[in-house]
Amino acid sequence: MEGNNIIQVRNLCKSFGNLQVLNDISTDFKEQQVVSIIGPSGGGKSTFLRCLNLLETPTSGKVIFNDVNLCSKDADINVQRQKIGMVFQHFNLFNNMNVMKNLTIAPMRIKGKSKEEAEEKAIGFLKRMGLEDKATSYPAQLSGGQKQRIAIVRSLMMEPEVMLFDEPTSALDPEMIGEVLDVIKQLAMEGMTMLIVTHEMRFAREVSDRILFLDGGKIDEDRTADEFFDDPHSPRLISFLQKVL
């Protein structure tokens, strides 16, 4: 289980104007580790995740991905982002493209894959999800759960080294949460490195090697999954768990 560090975060700070959202965060993420990030709304979870692929530019500090400092001017962020998949709360499938196009456009345009190769791979994924009949549907014709599973596949098509999930089930109707969590669990079993912001406590405990509690822009607790729930130290985490469990 212990792999190399894939992401190293050093003294990461992020402010929006006068509002300091991330306050000097340093931590490492190892290959094949599944790390969940839990915390109250507004605590900076999304901002933290978005700093890791520079959708937000850190105010100071470093994000080192595979020995490349993403914040430095020399790093080609567009190339690095290809290796960092991201799944959003609101899916963000490309609305102007059907499912097949959503899945194949990036491998074809960015990685230079042939249409045949990309489509074959896409069909493989769709079959595994039981969504092969949706290849020509547009996002507006899909349910939330279907959209999110397609969005996950869209990221996987780029063969990322790490996947970031920002509350992947928060916008879903309850009956669709399971199908999306199952896909993520499957990825965890296959050894995908993942960072998951979630409010699904049972799922987090089940799937994670490690859980972070992010509150007030700081990592307030950083433990294995079982310790996180059974033996929390931080008073804020204790009161948070009392509220949500």
Binding site: L55, V79, M86, F88, H90, F91, N92, F94, R109
Partner: peptide
Amino acid sequence: DEGQMEAARSIGFKYGESMKLVILP
């Protein structure tokens, strides 16, 4: 929706490509 641009950028498209392929259509 701004999420469209974010998704395009996060997958590795440059700004111009994101505009051309996703936003402008």
